[in-house]
Amino acid sequence: MSTVTQAGPAVPAGSAEALSERRPLGDRGFQVLALAAGLLVLVILVLIAISTTQQATSWFTTEGFKGIFSTNWNPAANKFGAMTFVYGTAITAVIAIVLAVPVSLAIALLLTEVVPRRRARPIVYVVDLLAVVPSVVWGLWGILVFAPWVQHIYASIGSALGGVPVLGALFGPPTSGASFFTAGLILAFMITPIVTSLSREVIATVPAIDREGAYALGATRWEMIRGVVWPHSHGGIVGAVLLGLGRAMGETIAAALVIGSSPVITSHLFAPGYNMPAVIANQFGESSGVFRSALMGLGVMLFAFTIIVNVFSRAVVARSARRMRGA
């Protein structure tokens, strides 16, 4: 990027003329274009960060840090505490990850280690199709079909576990079809394709010769997976999971439709709740002044969280890549 006058490598020796020859216009044009595109992304990102932060300042100046850590969200009384939604975002994202990761890994291992490549292809298509279902369709299906259906399951689990110490606090009543858990489930469906396909790609890079090395020692398929595939790919898989986590945190419309829209902090997973993207989507239309500024503030926090998760996941992947090179 720094120097534009690099000489081509194939210059014949002893010819000063050839050395000073300028690179063709197309080449320089391409370099400028690529650089501009790269910078544009950066500029847009910075502008979003600056303008949303600016819009959030009036919330921050009226509420201060108290606003971030307060759990009181009451627009009618001009109380805008963010913690309820941070909590809801964390809960739904964790539920989504806990449900999606084992399934995704199982599918990825099935496709790479068990099913022959020829027969794996249709399964890959189907899993990838899950990824193209629009978010709003997931949300509508979730609230119109899925929530009424799981409601009965929640109710029976809730009544069965109501009195049990820890489980009762998590799965006991109140129960509702639109709840943290339903939102987590829908998010799990939505992130399964990305986690599966990233894990599958990582696992596919495990060298065949390493697999054979394990088999040659009398390892079973499972022992080979544990001994060779896992150490080779766990860094990449953690990266895939964190990318899924970032998506689950930021996913908006589906969560807004099925989460129940109740700004409370509760340990009951089957109870209605709220999270950051959902509250922004649901309440932005009727907001103004500090209310709108508070919603912008939630957006800034969410943006920051997803950036942190992304940076962290990249660091994990890079670290494991370094380890693989043998340090």
């Binding site: 010769i209 390493d210 090395g213 020692l217």
Partner: peptide
Amino acid sequence: RRRIGMVFQKPNPFP
């Protein structure tokens, strides 16, 4: 394979 081991062309230590 537990009785009959194999060493490969390319050294393939596990990570």
